[in-house]
Design a protein around this nucleic acid. Sequence first.
DNA 1: TATGAATGAGCATTCATTCAT
DNA 2: GATGAATGAATGCTCATTCAT
Lengths: 212, 212, 212, 212
Amino acid sequence: MNEPKIKRDPEGTRRRILSAAAEEFANGGLSGARVDQIARRALTNERMLYYYFGSKEQLFTAVLEQAFACLADAERQLDLDGLEPVDAITRLAHFIWNYYFEHQDLLRLLNNENLHEARYIKNSSRINEMMSPVTSMLSRILRRGAEAGVFRNDVDPLRFYVTLSALGYYVLSNRYTLAAILGRDFTEPEERAEVLRLSTDMVLCYLRTKAS
Amino acid sequence: MNEPKIKRDPEGTRRRILSAAAEEFANGGLSGARVDQIARRALTNERMLYYYFGSKEQLFTAVLEQAFACLADAERQLDLDGLEPVDAITRLAHFIWNYYFEHQDLLRLLNNENLHEARYIKNSSRINEMMSPVTSMLSRILRRGAEAGVFRNDVDPLRFYVTLSALGYYVLSNRYTLAAILGRDFTEPEERAEVLRLSTDMVLCYLRTKAS
Amino acid sequence: MNEPKIKRDPEGTRRRILSAAAEEFANGGLSGARVDQIARRALTNERMLYYYFGSKEQLFTAVLEQAFACLADAERQLDLDGLEPVDAITRLAHFIWNYYFEHQDLLRLLNNENLHEARYIKNSSRINEMMSPVTSMLSRILRRGAEAGVFRNDVDPLRFYVTLSALGYYVLSNRYTLAAILGRDFTEPEERAEVLRLSTDMVLCYLRTKAS
Amino acid sequence: MNEPKIKRDPEGTRRRILSAAAEEFANGGLSGARVDQIARRALTNERMLYYYFGSKEQLFTAVLEQAFACLADAERQLDLDGLEPVDAITRLAHFIWNYYFEHQDLLRLLNNENLHEARYIKNSSRINEMMSPVTSMLSRILRRGAEAGVFRNDVDPLRFYVTLSALGYYVLSNRYTLAAILGRDFTEPEERAEVLRLSTDMVLCYLRTKAS
DNA sequence: TATGAATGAGCATTCATTCAT
DNA sequence: GATGAATGAATGCTCATTCAT
């Protein structure tokens, strides 16, 4: 009656359910999210959710798949191969740092998923097929840097990648408990800039050092 | 009947409930944990849970309080003031790294708590009262290092502390999604040792560099 | 299985819940009534009760609203304006007397509601909107009687209305304790007739007396 | 610790439980009252309630018994035999009117008990033994009045007694719903005085009228 | 494709009551 | 006589899901 009813828009209905579910699962996780809330937010009814996705769990998986697909897309649009190694690393560090900040839903979904021991990612063939494009990119940068003599040559790309991701992820994911316990909000603009600088300084300092 | 019934053991009952709750809340979080499961695991009945803790949420808070109290205790037992600055930092890095590894329940509780935006920590006067003892310790180490000329002198202790914590926390918290996506398990013993080495190398490398 | 299942009858389901609730709330009141009993009696399940009414308390309010709506309907169907004043008063006295007798659920609901200090009536906008139609009717009768010289002219209509209601309500509401303590059942047919006669004699006797 | 603990006062404990129970049962009735509330209000623990009274229902019965015993006591202290019949009736009407007003707990208990169909009064031998002293008193007054020629001689004492009680009980018991529906509070001092006057005028007017 | 109606299992919580000291 | 600890059976309510149209 007073609610805007969308009629006969299968594509749109599916999309609205997916984005509504992303928000609800981000807050609350799998068990905390409510199907009626998702339906209401998607301007449809609960039945359609089952019609399109089969079950709450399958919907959760679909949300994860979409979030990962977005990340992979963004990574693919990064073109670091034309940059100097130092600039490439700096650029990559900034990209990762910003991506999580701008997609905190993904961060929350990842946290939830890890609390489930990645059960739903493992069951998704789509996610398993998409290998992170950024790792091979990183390998190339590190190799180029080593060949140019600006980087040490004993760096494992995967290990280095988690190092690049860790600080940004950690201060964002733990912002609330850190604020409660340390009394500082690491997501305020100035503070963010300082931590990012610390992070890039640290990794570059390490890369430039000769292996012992 | 066939279960061992413990009778008249208030201390023990309370303790059993608390530790059962810690496990159940670690898996599943606040909404995922089931009070009947907690009661069963504690070898008591649901009623006692309310008798001792009032509500599921208050029990959750009590679990958080205990986990934080344990961490604070462990931090207090660290005596770094007698060590050389470099050794002290190394020791601290190892401590943090190992503590989360050996107390993954705390890590999961923290993740859950951050998904709740730290609502339950904020409501706990006990937790708010216990300021992390490690930060003042870290300040002293950094100052000593700077005075001895081995460390740069522009390092913010809190910012440095989250840097120390971040990598260990990240690879542990995200082990499942990292394994699914990057195909490597960062919690295997050898891998852990390598990542820890990378981490300490990186921070020490940074500390030794003169400020730009 | 062996119970008659009614399917796809929203009107009927709602109605059956309401009438089942009326009975259960009449016995036992708000706290004494059980939602599973109401559901069983309504040949449906507990969930539908919440589907249609939201909560036990809202269902209680809906039951009160319906009972009051019935009373107001019955009052509206009384046409006393064409009768002689004495006949009109007699007729009204009989109506009130009989209505409570034939709707003892309403009486019990009213008793319960007064034990709650009318909390649920106050929260019902529907009930607050329907002013008792009978009071204005009574005003007109009393005025006509006074103008015709058969009634005294100092009678307050509302005060007189509660006098008319009181005796019938009291002997019915307190029938059980009166029977236990005085040893007489005031709801037996002969006794009822006598008390009704006493009541009408009394009020008419009073109305006919000149004001002192 | 911070609560005043009463120790070794069996008489007092019993009394405090009884009066606490009276209040809790008056609000909420049998099913609405909570044993822990009663215990807390009585400054003792739940166990003592069972020690002294056996069960919640037996406690309810004991409360009823005490309330009735108080009423019977008060009635016995009325000495109407020395008064003129008209004064005696007036005095009795005022007594009843005031007693319920000053003992609204009794009124609420009676309402609750009638909602239970007087189950608990019936099971109390004590209450069944105490016949209301006021009825025989009333018989004597009516006889004297009739013999003196001031009262009609066809009045049934019991029927007349309920008439005397009804109005006072009704406006008090139904004060909240009457206020909500008629918009007038019949328990305000001035209004009470007027209704009492209406009531006594009415019964005296009736008594003075010759039988038809 | 879309939707209101229906369901049973499960949820956190509360209850009166009893046990053991 | 007095008390803290313990219990099992409800209680109101919510959940994800399916039915019928």
